[in-house]
Design a protein around this nucleic acid. Structure first.
Lengths: 200, 200
DNA sequence: CTCAGCACTTAATCTAGGTTAATGACGGTG
DNA sequence: CACCGTCATTAACCTAGATTAAGTGCTGAG
């Protein structure tokens, strides 16, 4: 249990750092937070269902993905250590989730109650800061992604991916990378060598 | 000049309505705002250049678009009456604009100084509200767009476009619609009838 | 050790949409 | 009126990536 508190303090420090302000007075949230360990390939959230939790990643790696009507999965993002795999659009709109969330590795996560966070981000200044900063970062990220999907070829997106996600180098299976790029695993396998060897 | 004030009041009312709060104490901004009329196809912002203004659309229609290195333009969004064609990512990152802005029709615009808005959104509660709400709406919009680009075919995106932008029905030339969808005008022209006639 | 399952590769074929280029249909202007 | 520029259409051909279908290699459970 004292371990749990350590993780929560680590999260609060890390969030302070990310939003770029020193925060002293985090509200006590021990009652609405749980540190959990889950195996790889564990489903944390299913698209179309109501959101019950956000997840701060203490260790491990998770992916967010959309699903097409014919069952294909398209990866939206990957979140590793010290990031929150949250669902801001669900929080803003109070809608069911547009995407699913699944672990790629065994993970240690801090499970934050969705409803608790809803009241925190309205009433508690530090969490307000986390929320607003989160919205800004998501906006930037999504805009960059929009530009990539519209203006770049699969090859360019692949090279860009390697730069953007170098910190997760080797931890994301190739077929999940393909899915992030919006191409098939076969296409990525076919072109990979050529793409990596060519300049530009 | 009294006309100008009318437009600014209209803008403030409209913004209050959009962010869902009654705001009484808008700061006086008459000195950092200008009501301007511009012809169609007028360039308001060039990608890669520093942002100097945001634009509230009093009447008319503008488009935001990315540019590829080989000169192709990919439309990002269309903004009509009562929307702000702003550049939140530039504001957040203090970076040059990622996209260009151009009028599609003769427009009446309220030109808001970028720097003035930067200080307003930090210090003035109503503009803080506008900024935070704007971030949230952009986040939602961009996420929806990401999902569309990843999971839908050109046909599905076209039908979706007609639903989402029905308010601008007939005001956006077809080649700009194609560009928004991420296909060529020729491809849209070729498939349009079939796409519109088929169910789903 | 063996087998099953999963990630990845390879290759043949198919298709949506791109490219190029020619043709029309307007609408504005001299 | 004739001319031009802009947008839409059409058609012939091309290409990136999808689809399908075998295969390979590794790993982990029995």
């Amino acid at each position: 249990m004292s371990m749990e508190i350590d993780y929560i303090l680590q999260m609060q420090q890390e969030l302070s750092r990310q939003i770029g302000m020193e925060i002293e007075d985090w509200p006590d949230i021990y009652d609405s937070v749980k540190v959990i360990d889950v195996e790889a390939k564990h489903c944390l959230q299913r698209a179309g269902e109501a959101v019950t939790h956000h997840y701060f990643v203490v260790s491990g790696l998770v992916r967010l993905f959309y699903q097409t009507r014919n069952g294909k999965e398209l990866n939206k993002a990957f979140y590793g250590e010290n990031y929150i795999a949250g669902n801001l659009s669900a929080l803003i709109l109070n809608d069911p989730s547009r995407f699913s969330v699944e672990t790629l590795e065994p993970c240690k996560l801090i499970e934050l109650s969705f409803n608790k966070f809803r009241s925190l981000y309205i009433h508690s200044p530090p969490w307000q800061g986390v929320f607003n900063h989160g919205c800004q970062m998501m906006l930037i990220r999504n805009e960059r992604r929009e530009a990539e999907l519209l203006t770049m070829t699969a090859k360019q997106r692949f090279l860009q991916f390697n730069r953007n996600f170098s910190e997760y180098q080797g931890r994301i299976p190739q077929y999940h990378i393909a899915s992030y790029l919006g191409i098939t695993p076969e296409a990525l396998s076919k072109h990979k060598k050529q793409w990596l060897s060519s300049t530009e």
